[in-house]
Simulated assay, not measured.
Amino acid sequence: MRISLLAVGKLKDAEERAISDRYAKRFNGAGRSIGLGPIDIRELNESRQASADERKQDEAARLLKDLAADTFIVALDPAGKSVSSEAFARTLGEKRDGAVKTCAFLIGGPDGHGAQVLKSAGMTLSLGALTLPHGLARVVLLEQLYRAATILSGHPYHRA
């Protein structure tokens, strides 16, 4: 199952980019043998529309634009479901085993996701109650994808 990560906003910090790249590379290595990956990471510019609603609508349209109709969409959202690493891994494994071809994780802009993204999502996921900058949220998501791949493969990285 291919994994896409689409994020509104670009990583500007070299350290965040280096950590993101490290976990993406680790995920690709760990996921290959268990049918996960490769991961495709795409950054979209933040909308320049005047109002928050217009920005969210514009960003939602661009996030969804190139996704195939059968893509399983996971929208990162503070109001989403908070799950354990093990439950996250099980969900990925179930989607992979259920013949889902692509799972796309969507990170919205500073105003959050537009209604169309939330309506299209098969799952809304919260990374926790704390507010995270978007770059750090991306790092946390990539680390959890890598962790999920190691859990599914029986690798000792996850020692819970």
Rank of each mutant, 00 (worst) to 15 (best):
M1R: 10
M1W: 10
M1P: 15
I3P: 00
L5K: 00
A7G: 11
V8H: 01
V8P: 00
K10Q: 11
K10P: 01
L11D: 05
K12W: 06
D13R: 11
D13M: 07
A14I: 02
A14K: 14
E15M: 07
R17L: 11
A18D: 12
S20G: 10
D21Y: 06
Y23V: 06
Y23F: 15
R26Y: 12
R26P: 00
F27M: 10
A30L: 08
A30D: 01
G31A: 06
S33D: 13
L36A: 09
G37S: 11
G37Y: 09
P38D: 04
D40N: 12
D40E: 15
E43F: 06
L44V: 07
N45I: 01
E46D: 14
Q49W: 06
A50E: 14
A52N: 13
A52S: 09
R55H: 04
R55I: 07
Q57D: 11
Q57H: 05
D58L: 04
L63S: 06
L64W: 10
L67D: 04
D70M: 03
T71P: 03
F72V: 06
V74S: 02
A75Y: 02
L76I: 06
D77Q: 08
A79N: 15
A79G: 11
G80H: 08
G80T: 08
G80E: 12
G80A: 10
A87Y: 08
F88T: 01
F88R: 05
F88N: 00
R90H: 13
T91L: 08
L92V: 06
E94D: 15
K95H: 13
R96G: 02
D97F: 07
G98E: 14
G98I: 04
A99S: 10
A99E: 13
V100H: 07
K101R: 15
A104W: 00
L106N: 01
I107L: 14
I107T: 10
G108I: 01
G108M: 01
G109Q: 01
D111S: 09
G112A: 05
H113R: 10
A115L: 09
A115W: 05
Q116F: 07
V117S: 12
V117Q: 01
M123F: 12
T124D: 07
L125F: 12
L125E: 13
S126M: 02
S126N: 04
S126I: 05
L127M: 14
A129W: 01
L132Y: 14
P133F: 02
P133G: 02
G135T: 08
L136G: 01
L136C: 05
R138S: 01
V140H: 10
L141Y: 13
L142E: 12
E143Q: 09
Q144W: 09
Q144A: 04
Q144G: 09
L145I: 09
Y146R: 07
Y146S: 04
R147I: 11
A148V: 06
A148S: 12
A149N: 11
A149C: 13
T150M: 11
L152M: 15
L152I: 11
S153Q: 13
